[in-house]
Amino acid sequence: MSNDTLPATAPAAPPAKTPKKEKAASLWSDAWYDLRRNPVFVIGAAMVGILVVISAFPGVFDSVGVDPSTCNLANARKGITSEHWFGSDNLGCDVYSRVIHGARVSILVGFISAAVTGIVGGVLGLLAGFYGRWVDIILSRVAEIFFAIPSILGALLILAVIGRDNAGIGSVVLALGLLAWPMVLRIMRAAVITAKHQDYVVAARALGAGPWRIMLRHILPNALAPVIVVSTINLGAFIAAEAALSFLGVGIQSPQISWGLMIADARNRFLEAPLPLLFPALFLSLTILSVVMLGDAVRDALDPKLR
């Protein structure tokens, strides 16, 4: 039989594509989707990222190559030159090098204080909101005692007791964190009280889940969003507070470098030499602005009422 008489075979059908299983939408995935498309978040995160890299590797950005602790009175209050990009201060120290190296103190104090207050206040708020009764009463009354103390005045008192000789990053973090954790406790407590009455918690309890499993697996992920928001916003407040305390003379002490300390040293000769004050003040303002932008974007993304 010739090939022309063979019956034509139908082409094989392509294999059916199995539908891809889509991930279930959640608050965190929706928030990340919104943040990536928010220009305020992108700009703020980029600025904060640059400042973090500068604080971690100041030598990479110190292209002038001048030691920030080396001062020459012959160069006191000089303007911008090829050797001193931001001029020199009252002692002849290079302002650019000191601004670059001073970023480390502000960034460290801000991030450590925000992390400490977020963890301490979050854990205590989780316990107070979940267990209630005497645990809630004791923790809430202790928090109210700290709430009654004005933040800057209380930090001044704590640092005055510690003394200038022992002042440093650790003491500033202690002073700021000791007065800021009650705010996080209240926010976490309110979120936990709301979450523990939801149906998924009732179902987990009916299935025999223990209290720690309910807290860590069901309540904490759904109550964590407001704590992240307030911790991000507090980051800028802590950076500003560190500069204020250093400016008042009770925070970071020389020979350490801080933007607030640089502003305090340059204020008496501002009219004669404004550059030593303007540049650290500019970097401080940009840092706080970038953190505020970041915090606003995170708040908008994690708050369902603002969607």
Rank of each mutant, 00 (worst) to 15 (best):
D4F: 05
A12V: 15
A13S: 11
A13N: 02
A13Y: 11
K21F: 10
E22C: 06
K23P: 00
L27E: 13
S29D: 09
Y33N: 15
P39T: 14
P39I: 15
G44L: 10
A45Y: 06
G49A: 12
G49I: 00
G49W: 01
G49N: 10
V52S: 05
V53P: 08
V60H: 07
D62E: 14
D67Q: 06
P68Y: 06
L73S: 13
A74P: 02
N75T: 08
A76W: 00
K78C: 03
K78A: 09
I80Y: 09
H84E: 10
H84F: 01
G87E: 13
G87H: 12
N90K: 14
G92W: 04
C93G: 13
Y96S: 11
R98V: 07
G102D: 11
R104D: 04
R104Q: 06
A115W: 04
G118N: 12
G118L: 15
I119A: 08
V123N: 03
L124E: 00
L127V: 01
G129M: 03
Y131R: 01
D136W: 03
L139S: 03
L139N: 00
R141P: 03
R141L: 04
E144H: 07
I145E: 02
I145P: 03
I149F: 01
I149E: 03
S151N: 11
L153G: 04
V161C: 02
I162W: 08
G163Y: 09
R164T: 10
I169T: 14
S171D: 03
S171M: 11
S171T: 13
V172F: 06
L176T: 08
L176V: 06
W181N: 04
I193M: 15
I193L: 15
H197K: 12
H197S: 14
D199W: 03
V201Q: 07
V202G: 05
R213V: 02
R213W: 06
I214E: 03
R217Y: 04
P221H: 10
N222S: 09
A223V: 06
V227P: 00
N234A: 14
L235T: 01
A241R: 07
E242N: 01
L245S: 01
F247Q: 05
F247W: 05
L248D: 05
V250L: 06
I252G: 01
I252Y: 02
Q256R: 09
S258A: 08
W259D: 13
G260M: 05
L261T: 05
I263L: 12
I263W: 03
A264T: 01
A266R: 09
R269L: 12
R269V: 14
R269K: 12
F270R: 01
P274W: 07
P274N: 06
L275F: 08
L278I: 14
T287L: 14
T287A: 15
V292I: 13
L294C: 06
D296I: 00
D296T: 04
V298F: 07
D300L: 04
